[in-house]
Every structure is written in C-alpha cells, then in structure tokens.
Design a protein around this nucleic acid. Structure first.
Lengths: 201, 201
DNA sequence: GTCTATAAGCAGATAGAC
DNA sequence: GTCTATCTGCTTATAGAC
C-alpha cells in the first residue's frame, strides 16, 4: 500500500516513546500498537520481534545522543571554546529528548557492552584527541592539573544530571514544574561558568 | 521454626540484589527464590506479592542513600566543610552500593512521586537550611554568585555520575575494569578540588 | 514454616482470510 | 499491507499436604 514507509515510521515513533518511558521490560507491544494507531501484528510484520523493535530504537537514540558529542569533540577549536560548545549543543540536544539519557543509561547498566557492539572504538578515538588537548593545556599552564577522564566525567555529569535526576531534585529542592523548567533553561550558563571557574590554573 | 527472621532476611537480601540488577519488570520471582536458596512460595509467605517485596527493597534503598545526605546537610558546620564531608560520606556510601543510585533513578523516572509518598517534606526542609547558608555565603562574598539549586545539583551530579554512567564512560575513555576502579577511588579528591575551584568568589 | 503441584492470566508471536 | 483469531510459553500467585 501507499502507507508503506508511513506505517513503519508511525510504529517506530510510538515504540520510541514507549520504550523511553517504560524501558524494555516495562514496555508492552500492545501499548505500542495502540499508540501507533494500528494492529499489534503489524509490529511483527515490520520489525519481526520486540527485541528487533527495541534494537532499532536503541540504535537511533544512541546515535542522536552521541553524534553531537563526537562532532564537537573532534572539531578543531581551542579547548575552552570546545567545552563551551559542548555544553551548548549537548544541553539543547537533551532538552529536545529529555528521556533519552535515562533510557540509554538504564539499558547500558543492564547490558554494559550493548554500546560497544556498534559504536565500536569511535568513542575511544574521539576521546583520545580530547585527552591530548587537555594534557597539553595542563602542561602549558592554561588549565589546572586534571586528568582527561575526570574532566570529561565532570563535563557530562553537569550537563546530564538535572535531566536524569529530575524527580529526586524536584522533590528535594521543592521546585514546581514551571520553576524546574526555568531552572533547566538557566543551566547552560551555570554549567559553563562552573567549568571555567573549576579549570582555572 | 527457628529460621524465622533468618529466612526473611535471606529473601530480602536476594530480592535487593536482583531488583537492583534488573529493575522491577526485569526481575523474576523465581530468580530471587533461587538466590535465597528457598522455594518460590516462601516469597509470598513473607512478602505477600512481588510489589510488596519491591516496596520493601525500595524503601530500604532510598533510606540508605538519602539518610547520610540529610544528616550531613543538616549538620552544624561551616559551608565549605559541609560540602567536603558530603563528598566524603556520599562517595563512600555509593561505593559500597554502586547499584543503588541507578536503581532509585530508574524507579523514580518511571514513578516520579514514589519518593514523596514516604520521604515527605524531609528533603525540602533539609534543603532549605542549606539554601539559606548558601545565600548568606554569597552575600558575605565567600562564594561566587550561584543559586542553591545549581550548587546542590552540581554537587550530587559530580559524586554520582561516574557510578551510574560507568558503562558509557568506560567505553569512551577506554579504561579497563582495574583502571576504572582506581579512577573511582581518586574521585573524592577530584570532586572536592573541582567544587572549591568552581565556588571561589 | 516449608514444600510440591497447579491454577489463572498475560504477553509475544503466528496463521490465515481479505 | 492490514486485519481477526488463536497458540504457546512464561510468570505470578494460591491450594493444600507435611
């Protein structure tokens, strides 16, 4: 039929939403079908099995989240600009897909090497470039002594944590939904400021 | 029988391990029973249902993770010492239970107000104390301008993230298991250093 | 308290008509 | 390509003997 690609796309988008919200084991094929507005057997027609559907969603999500990271980190920019752009792009990216980081983290905590199976060594290569730049900047005295691993962990932690820990942070701080959204919008500036202060020699 | 409390305890510990590893939907009652070395119907004898067992594990885990936070934050200490002790105690606590933060975050992302149902306003009260101290320190010029919410988010993010994102950080940085363990051991010092640099006026 | 056996329900997957 | 109907296996939960 004419709805060929259309149906497949609708199924995929529905699956993405449900898997992101409920995780692999919490998701129900029937709920995905209902959300896509079609019959349950269509899911199997297009994606063979629940695992096949999940795999498609996982790959797409991992790509969306990691691609901008890899691009920024391998760009040819002075280190401090690179860190700024990382914060800028990454927080934008995650704001548009607030469930994605939690979804990936959850899946990877249960299947730690699911990522390596298709990201391969791409991450490692990009990271080595950054690591070299960090070490040089430290030697030149432009950066206080810090390991590349710590720097990278700090950077990503500050960007992602307010998204993945939203429920607990909202409970503790007492911010309501509106206030929390505005808190998230302000984060970009705060994270940049925090990082630059923390890295001054 | 004499094994009264003993059996209950064994079941609870097994359930804790399995729920932490697999989450609510991924956990199987049979696997919990096998791990506890008893029959599956015993689980229901002691804890009525899967949900009852999960609830017990969730409450205990939330208590373990949050109690030290609340204690440190409500202690009567100068702010900068308080932050140091927070890092110290929190990273120790999480090192002993590396699955706990991921487990709580996952559950809370699927059921955002599960926490409020028994932590109530305790978190908010403790946070307000900290918030007051932060605002005062900023006014006195001991701290660069920063909102209490950002400070708290940054603090917890830096402590927890290397634990919950271990698989992805290990893939990207290329650290093997031994190297990553040693990285985690070094974190306490790095986080303290990072925070003090970042908060200097 | 602890076991074995089994009921009851549900989820993923397939068959086959249109 | 899309639907309805149905199968199969697994999972939680209970009944009932010891």
């Amino acid at each position: 039929m004419a709805s060929d690609r259309n149906t497949e796309k609708r199924i995929f988008e529905a699956a993405k939403a449900i898997f992101h919200e409920r995780g692999y084991h919490g998701a129900r094929m029937q709920e995905i079908a209902r959300r896509a507005g079609i019959n349950q057997s269509m899911l199997h027609y297009y994606f063979r099995s629940k695992e096949g559907l999940f795999e498609a969603v996982f790959r797409a999500t991992a790509g969306e989240v990691l691609t901008p990271v890899f691009e920024v980190l391998s760009a040819d920019l002075p280190l401090s600009e690179k860190l700024d752009r990382f914060v800028e792009i990454y927080i934008d990216q995650v704001s548009a897909n607030p469930y994605a980081p939690g979804f990936l983290l959850e899946e990877l905590s249960h299947h730690p090497d699911h990522l390596r199976r298709f990201a391969g060594d791409r991450g490692k290569v990009v990271f080595e470039k950054l690591a070299g730049e960090v070490r040089e900047a430290v030697v030149r005295g432009e950066l206080r002594p810090i390991s590349p691993e710590d720097l990278f962990a700090n950077l990503v932690a500050l960007c992602l944590f307010p998204f993945i820990a939203r429920p607990i942070l909202q409970t503790v701080t007492g911010l309501d939904d509106d206030a929390y959204r505005s808190f998230l919008r302000r984060r970009k500036r705060e994270v940049r400021r925090f990082i630059h202060h923390a890295l001054k020699p």
